[in-house]
């Protein structure tokens, strides 16, 4: 592909034609804010936060979906751009609960990050707010619709795995929501708790429930580990606080790494000082289960015991 040269905030950069502005900007160290954009997902241009000014265009353009052309001149932080972003952020905040005080996402929340960066605060208003629908049915995922900003990342990442495709958009306009299947609870739905959606959610709408109350993101020490269950080797993070490993969480899926519950539970079991109860979904119902069963080791362990490869108190030779 031919290369084109463009100017972003008076910095020149040469990139392959067909590159999106947001990626070209990254090349020269300019970060354009975006809530719905993810290089691993289909581009949708939904959040509009990545708006930039392109010389020659009257309207602001979304940097995530506009391709570069030779000689393009882009301004990513002009007064007009900043004003537009502030407005978008203000509208998002107007429909978002003000609970960063204790929100589990605080510290990693993109809405919080950009609100700070653009100095936008919550304000009092009499308008409608999203209903506070909280789905607590799953022991693995907490889904809080009141915090959802409808970026659709969860829907797109769920759809990337052919046999999942659980999450979809429902309704229209102000009533738009993300639902599981035909608006079922996560428990009732076909959700397999792989947590792909949790890893991409930019706000606190989809949270790893097993992290709740374990500490604030800034308190954790993080160690990256690879899952050992299958050859995909998905990436996980072991979170520790005050010297204790308190939680395991999935890193965003990429390069064909699908993420799955079994892998996550196995990683939990290996690394956590005190692994908490595993749950298994049977006929649309979550039930407490044993680690043996959760990790699918029932038959294996019996056989190992049988072969005396594992036991207690048996002396080995050599």
């Amino acid at each position: 592909m031919a290369n084109v040269t463009i100017t972003i905030d008076s910095k020149k950069v040469t990139v392959p034609s067909g590159t999106f502005i947001i990626e070209a900007a990254k090349e020269v160290g300019i970060e354009i804010p975006a809530l719905c954009y993810d290089p691993n997902l289909e581009v949708v241009g939904a959040c509009r936060l990545c708006l930039v000014e392109v010389e020659g265009s009257r309207k602001l353009q979304t940097a995530c979906s506009t391709k570069v052309w030779d000689g393009m001149v882009v301004h990513t932080r002009s007064e007009r751009v900043v004003k537009a972003r502030k407005e978008i952020l203000q509208l998002l905040l107007d429909n978002h609960p003000n609970d960063c005080l204790t929100c589990q996402k605080a510290g990693e929340c993109l809405l919080q990050k950009y609100a700070y960066e653009y100095d936008v605060k919550f304000r009092e208003h009499d308008g409608d707010r999203r209903p506070a629908l909280v789905d607590t049915s799953s022991p693995y995922i907490l889904k809080d619709d009141s915090k959802c900003i409808l970026c659709g990342k969860c829907v797109r990442t769920c759809a990337q795995v052919a046999d999942r495709q659980v999450l979809t958009f429902a309704n229209r306009g102000f009533n738009t929501r993300i639902v599981a299947d035909i608006d079922l609870s996560l428990e009732e739905s076909s959700c397999v708790s792989c947590n792909r959606c949790v890893t991409v959610c930019p706000v606190g709408a989809l949270l790893d429930k097993r992290l709740m109350g374990k500490g604030r993101p800034w308190e954790f020490e993080i160690k990256e580990v690879k899952c050992k269950v299958c050859e995909y080797g998905c990436d996980f993070e072991v979170l520790s606080r005050n010297g204790k490993n308190v939680a395991v969480r999935a890193k965003a899926p990429s390069n064909g790494r699908p993420l799955c519950l079994k892998g996550r539970l196995t990683t939990e079991f290996i690394y956590l000082d005190e692994p908490y109860t595993p749950y298994k979904k049977e006929n649309g119902e979550f039930k407490e289960t044993t680690w043996k069963e959760a990790l699918g080791l029932d038959n294996i362990i019996e056989k190992l015991l049988d072969k005396e490869e594992i036991s207690t108190g048996v002396e080995y030779n050599g």
Partner: peptide
Amino acid sequence: NDCLTCEKSG
């Protein structure tokens, strides 16, 4: 209630 942008947050 402004932990969203409060400099002390964290």
